[in-house]
Computed example of a mutant assay.
Amino acid sequence: MDHVLKVADHYFFTPYLYPASWPEDGALRQLISLSLLTNLGALTVYFVFGTLSFYFIFDHRLMKHPQFIEDQVRKEIQLAATSLFWMSFPTVGLFFLEIRGHSQLFDDVSQSSQGWPGVFLSIAGFLFFTDMCIYWIHRSMHHRSIYKHLHKQHHLFKIPTPFASHAFHPLDGFLQSLPYHVYPFIFPLNKVVYLTLFIFVNIWTISIHDGDYRIPGPLINIINGAAHHVDHHLFFNYNYGQYFTFWDRLGGSYKHPSVLQDNGPHVHIRKLAGNTLRQ
């Protein structure tokens, strides 16, 4: 995040926003700057990729499903925007610790004893670690003593659109994002790679809510895509994973996508349309 902050300081914050008496490395200034960048960045990724996905990927026929609620898109956006704002406060605290040098993030690949092989290994480690942690955090959110207070808000949307991707209770959303922030405090990771992965996971979160249920054949049983995740929204106790199906299989919560068994949302829409025509 310090790379983004340096660019913002150079081109905007220093010349146009802050008085000269506020040094760029001042803690208060950094916290304010990180708050602005975090909110702007999160909303930009959410609205840009969410909108592109909604208009160019999402199948709008799904909006005819009986469980697609009234005024759903507006409700998804409203909840997501509120959640992203409140989530930004603890997130900024973690970013602040990173730019203050308390993490294991590094600039130059040559600083890593493992070089480029270590960088690629760290990417695999990041995906494995975050997928594992999010699975168990997500599954715990479905415990009956927690669900009604936090995760229930996300499950209002049985047939989600891409705008539901970040529509969480703020605490629920932050806890599920926490593994992304924790990883570089435990394991070495290149700063540019970390920033790229952070953007990637937000786009991935949008993608598993995009209503495009097509999955390349060999990956059906490996990748947790939108076809898997819509079953999570519809059937509740299945497919908690983020990227892969590994932890669902290990935890006994894997469900083969109903859409691939001719029992998905489109089938119900066709049945509903057929019944309407017969009437």
Rank of each mutant, 00 (worst) to 15 (best):
H151C: 05
H151L: 12
H154K: 06
H155N: 04
L156F: 07
L156D: 11
K158E: 10
I159A: 04
P162V: 07
A164K: 09
A164P: 10
S165D: 06
S165C: 09
A167K: 07
H169D: 13
H169C: 08
P170M: 13
P170V: 13
D172A: 04
D172F: 10
G173A: 13
G173K: 11
F174E: 11
F174R: 12
L175H: 08
S177D: 10
S177M: 10
L178V: 11
P179L: 04
P179S: 04
Y180S: 06
Y180N: 11
Y180W: 11
H181R: 05
H181F: 12
Y183C: 06
P184H: 06
P184M: 08
F185Y: 09
I186Q: 03
I186A: 08
I186P: 01
F187K: 03
P188F: 10
L189M: 10
L189R: 02
K191Y: 06
K191C: 05
V192H: 14
V192P: 03
V192N: 11
V193Q: 04
V193A: 12
V193W: 12
Y194H: 06
Y194T: 00
T196Q: 11
L197K: 00
F198N: 01
F198R: 00
F198E: 02
I199C: 10
F200I: 05
F200E: 02
F200R: 05
F200M: 02
V201S: 01
N202H: 12
N202K: 13
N202M: 11
I203Y: 03
W204D: 02
W204G: 05
W204C: 01
T205H: 04
T205Y: 06
I206R: 02
I206E: 00
S207D: 06
S207N: 06
H209M: 06
D210I: 07
D210P: 03
G211I: 04
G211L: 03
I215A: 09
P216Y: 08
P216N: 09
G217P: 07
G217I: 14
P218T: 15
L219N: 12
N221F: 15
I222L: 15
I223L: 12
N224W: 11
G225W: 02
A226E: 00
H228V: 09
H228S: 08
H228D: 12
H229W: 09
V230L: 12
D231E: 14
D231K: 12
H232T: 00
H233I: 01
L234A: 10
L234C: 09
L234G: 09
F235I: 11
N237W: 11
N237R: 14
Y238T: 14
N239V: 03
N239I: 02
N239Y: 14
G241R: 05
G241K: 00
Q242Y: 14
Q242A: 13
Y243E: 00
Y243M: 01
F246A: 09
W247Y: 07
W247C: 01
D248V: 00
D248S: 04
R249T: 12
L250V: 15
L250S: 05
L250Q: 09
G252A: 13
G252H: 07
G252C: 04
S253D: 14
S253G: 10
